[in-house]
């Protein structure tokens, strides 16, 4: 079956934007972390995420052709054209929210790479082979922090439970397939999200239990990011990120 190039690009952008926007959010922490060692650790993760996004943007730019580059793809698309899920654009709020957001993504990101190393698309497969090593480390790091803070002091437990409760409604979107994902799954480029969802739930339950945190009972899930319907936050993220490219169009940096 022939691959529709536009749909493939749309899928690549979804993968890339997830890591890019989380990386952009995490980068706000640089220099402000609670402990110097963890400031460094979170920056490492951020560097991995942006590195992965760059590889994918480069691929998208090649498929797009013309004067497209990783930077035109990242810096010259507006909110409606971004394909990340809503979770990743949420505010850092504090270390509890940041860790919880990271953990929810890491579980998804890791199992996604585990599937993408068998993707029918060679390039996505190659990128996933590199990314899976990094995301395995990210998952270990954020899982340890979930447990440490959930099972730390009364205050830390409360803060973590609040973060879990508040962010929970943004976790389902990973597994609600977009039209693009449905097509990509049919031709073996993207994985079956139902399967991924089971793995995600099981891992999250294990870690939250060890962290003495309870799993929210609410079933309602927000969605829209994958087709460009974002929260109000993304506009500000992009305004900051794209400011120089917009203010000085066509310049070399």
């Amino acid at each position: 079956m022939a691959v529709n190039k536009d749909i493939l690009i749309d899928y690549i952008l979804h993968l890339a934007d997830n890591s890019m926007i989380l990386g952009q959010r995490n980068a706000e922490w640089c220099g402000h972390g609670p402990v110097l060692e963890q400031d460094i650790a979170l920056t490492n993760i951020t560097l991995d995420l942006i590195g992965e996004a760059r590889s994918l943007y480069q691929y998208a730019a090649e498929l797009t052709g013309g004067n497209s580059t990783e930077d035109t793809v990242a810096f010259l698309r507006d909110v409606m054209q971004y394909r990340n899920t809503l979770l990743l654009e949420q505010h850092n709020t504090d270390w509890a929210y940041t860790i919880t957001r990271q953990f929810f993504y890491d579980v998804f990101h890791y199992y996604l790479q585990e599937a993408l190393v068998n993707s029918a698309d060679e390039r996505i497969k190659e990128i996933a082979k590199k990314t899976i090593k990094e995301s395995a480390y990210h998952l270990k790091w954020s899982s340890e922090w979930m447990i440490r803070l959930g099972d730390g002091t009364e205050i830390s437990h409360l803060k973590m439970q609040n973060a879990v409760n508040d962010l929970w409604e943004y976790t389902g979107e990973f597994f609600i397939p977009s039209e693009t994902e449905i097509e990509m799954t049919e031709i073996g480029i993207a994985p079956d999200l139902t399967l991924l969802s089971k793995k995600w739930k099981s891992k999250v339950e294990d870690i939250l239990t060890e962290a003495t945190l309870s799993i929210p009972s609410s079933d309602f899930q927000q969605k829209g990011g994958k087709k460009g319907l974002h929260s109000e936050h993304l506009g500000f993220i992009l305004a900051e990120m794209q400011y120089l490219q917009r203010a000085y169009p066509g310049s070399e940096w």
Binding site: P34, G152, T153, I155, S156
Partner: peptide
């Protein structure tokens, strides 16, 4: 970051 260090 005090609560984070205390919890750790």
């Amino acid at each position: 970051g005090a609560w984070v260090r205390e919890a750790a």
